[in-house]
Amino acid sequence: MNPRQLRRAVHLLFLAAFLLFTLFPFFWMVASSLKDQTDLLASPPVWAFTPTFVHYAEIWQDDEVSGAIINSLIVASSTTLLAVLLGTPAAYSLARFQFRGKKDLWFWFISNRMISPIVLALPVYLLAQRAGLLDTHLVLILIYLSFCLPIVVWICTDQFRSIPGDIEQAARLDNANHWDIFWRIYLPLGLPGIAVSAIFSFIFSWNELLYALVLTRSDARTAPVIATSYMSGYELPWGKIMATGTVIVLPVTFFALLVSRHMVRGLTMGASK
């Protein structure tokens, strides 16, 4: 084996180890959701088994699960939409205009992500209670927005800054006003960044457990809350938990695959020298 082959072998070995590390829990979840209770609890684990969809049938009939998934969809897509809608114009301003307090504003957006969520859980709960917003979609959307907006602003500002200034000036000479430039030039050219930040926002809002647990009780419960709610009482229905987990992961996986094209496409290539 020559040094190049050796390097390649080591490379592949690391890659395989990493994939095993990240994908095994998913495999275990999906596999467990297809096992019956006996196979699930067998020790040593059963690798060859006859798949059963009994747990999926169970959650299909459980209104709480479908309700929670619908809640999650409403909360995650509203948060993502609002974060992109509000975050992209903010990012455009930060990327292109000079104004007082710009640096402070920028730091504020970044510093938001430095606070541990648990620190704010109690104050947020009290605020939501006073405002009568407990157990509503709105309270989750608002709190998730406060986490996702900085992500969108952060990523999109960087993306917009990378668009050559000449292109904006050419547009100014072409009679485009700031709105035209934002809408017709920056948004299409910033799609990769917008897509990435939208994915992050959606995944964050979809997976978030802490605030969902604290702020919802029944009507607005999201999917992760439902999945963990089975872990009480005397029995742990692993099959149902795993099936719910699998169903929860599916939409984000699908969403990520849908927009991943934009993440890798260098749209600005060939525009300038």
């Binding site: 050559p164 000036q169 050419a170 749209l267 600005t268 300038s272 020298k273």
Partner: peptide, 14 residues
Amino acid sequence: GVAMVFQSYALYPH
């Protein structure tokens, strides 16, 4: 009433 040709071309890539 002016038009400018930039060194970098500054074409709209999309």
